[in-house]
Amino acid sequence: MPKPTLLVTRRLPAGVEARASRDYQARLNPEDSPRTGADILRLSQGADAILCCPAEKLDAATIGALPASIKVLGTFSVGYDHIDLAAARMRALPVVNTPDVLSVATAEIAMLLILSASRRAGEGERLLRAGQWTGWCPTQLIGAAVSGRRLGIFGMGRIGRELARMAAAFGMIVHYYNRTRLPPDLEGTAMYHDDEDKFLSICDVISLNAPGGDGTRRWLNAERIAKLPPNAVVINTARGTLVDDAALIDALTTGRVAFAGLDVYDGEPRLNPGYLTLENAVLLPHLGSNTKQTRDAMGNLALDGIDAILAGREPRNLVK
């Protein structure tokens, strides 16, 4: 029996590509060129499955026009806001993602951003690299303590919970705001809030860990920023669309928000240029899951899901 055909939209870690080539007629992208919806339609003719990435927009028109031979769509990500799920459902196209395996690596980036934004590491780094360090002094580059401060987590899913565990080890006091309260074994010592205003008022540090999409678009806007305590720190490792960039840039400029640490941006990689010159923002290029171990695990999980669908089984990573 011939191997099924798999379209892989971007270059993947070597081990994952080797597995794809072993089990499939794999259409790889060794040049790692960006793919548009039209490219995907063209390249997927006659294929059985697609493994895509968050950089590609699988909107209703693209999904509606996919060849009938496509039986499963995998995404190399935990988020699926780039895929029109309603259109996939209409076409009865199963979608698989990569939950769990990147939670820890992403929470590490959130903790790194909490620390480096609060402690002004970006400014310190630039001072040293420029050879402009003139000496230690008790008032230079004074940041905000992390231990003992209140961390508010918006969206207490897997990544939020990993972050809560890490932050507690730093002596942070963890609060969270979520649609529903977690059961005690998942909640740990974190304090639940069902009142948004009250939640915002205790966030010395606020970390966004909610999914993207229309329900959370520009959630952190000027009105909500105004409800944070003075000198708050804003962290976003979830989706750029959660933040009203103009409002956050304004708050960082006036000092209403003391520091920000961001890994994701609306419209990335073409982020709002207002961020680029802010000294009190620590910026990372959406590399929350960027460890070798994690990327391999993501690729393998996505392939597990595609394998299962093509074999007529229901995978554990089926998006419902």
């Binding site: 310190g124 230690w136 230079q140």
Partner: peptide
Amino acid sequence: VPHMGSAT
């Protein structure tokens, strides 16, 4: 970083 261990 420029000797910032206690810089809060």
